[in-house]
Nucleic acid binder design. Structure first.
Lengths: 209, 209
DNA sequence: CACATAAGTGAACAACTGTACACAACGGTA
DNA sequence: TACCGTTGTGTACAGTTGTTCACTTATGTG
């Protein structure tokens, strides 16, 4: 008989989440995954699923939490590496792209979730993005790079930045991870987007012109 | 017995596409729809599906085509109504929001398709967006609103505009169509995004500063 | 009119789905 | 040691799925 339960606790749970991510990474859409399919991919009997999740939406929610960790790691790395302001955007976009390549499945899940069918997952991802934007605003304040902007205008700018990068995510996931040429095109375009936004922010006059 | 085939040709085909859209409009994800489910919603026997589509991906592709028509109608209306340049962005965003509300299911489909599991659908929607951006660039040239920008820089600007609006789509679809307050918030925010981008474009110095 | 073709129907089937239940092995606690 | 909650397993079942097939009916062209 197959050996039973000699592993450490929580392993099956992680295997299930990893399995769902793997399937998503293979191009499947999360909304179309079934419990049996995921357990099969995880090499686990279907009933095990219910020991850890109530249904697929539940699993999705837990994936959002893990996604949050990935994003925070990325943010930390960006904060540490971007010391001088001149190459700020090139550096940041580069770090973003590296993290996407290193966690492709996670970002697939994120891109899908933005228009997914679980309202909760959708809201979770959106909330992660808001958090990201507000942290970015903090950093810019601290680096004294946005002294002429009101809080509201700075927040708007950072929101737009995060959205633009998030949209580039869809581009990035649409090309093969080996296609260095296309990836570099996306890197350049995204960088220019950010530069354009910041030129706009630099000349922005709030409310009454 | 149920009456058979007295309707005009192509009606079932349209019913099937409408049924898929309806389900998507109810919050379901297109990737999770099944043939039987769609035919059931359309009030048609499952086998009828194969008379018109090879599979669900095929149906999705045909929906992209129809989506293209919706987008073109929207563009035409924007072109006709935006005569003076000063209120250009408020007007355009308003028209966009109206069309989204009037064709909610279509835009749900569009938002989902951007990260969907059918590569062909994904590419189709992306291509519609590129077309939209290039038409926008043409219009701006014609209105003499972008005289100092190179073709490449203008194209980039329009690309960013279209992306930003497309991202607002996700916001818009996330709130109830009756929630006038939230919708107005989205309207204002999107307008400000566009204004910020155009301020950036106005002060943009290409390549070598 | 005859006839080919397109469009719709119902019955059938094997494969798969989600979920329930009863049971076994393990880890910690008393 | 005895006990209990957690995790994993195997079996089972009713409902749904995609797809095939043989059939009817309407439509338009010769």
């Amino acid at each position: 008989m197959a050996e039973k339960q000699r592993r450490k606790p929580g392993e099956t749970r992680e295997k299930l989440m990893a399995a769902a991510l793997t399937l998503v990474g293979k191009g499947r859409h999360f909304a179309s995954l079934g419990i049996r399919e995921v357990t099969r991919q995880a090499g686990v009997v279907p009933t095990s699923f219910y020991r850890h999740f109530r249904n697929m939406d539940d699993l999705g929610l837990q994936l959002v939490d893990e996604l949050g960790l990935v994003l925070r790691r990325m943010m930390r790395e960006a904060r540490n590496n971007v010391l001088q302001a001149d190459k700020l955007m090139e550096e940041s976009v580069g770090i973003f792209i590296n993290h996407v390549q290193a966690n492709r499945s996670f970002f697939f899940f994120m891109a899908q979730g933005l228009a997914g069918e679980s309202r909760a997952v959708q809201e979770g991802i959106r909330s992660e993005m808001r958090f990201f934007a507000s942290e970015l605003a903090n950093d810019l304040r601290r680096l004294r790079l946005a002294e002429h902007l009101s809080d509201g205008d700075l927040e708007m700018t950072c929101d737009l930045v995060v959205r633009s990068v998030a949209f580039s995510l869809t581009d990035l996931l649409g090309v093969s991870p080996d296609d260095d040429y296309q990836i570099d095109q996306i890197r350049k375009r995204t960088t220019r987007f950010l530069q354009l936004i910041f030129v706009g922010a630099a000349h922005w006059k709030s409310e009454g012109a």
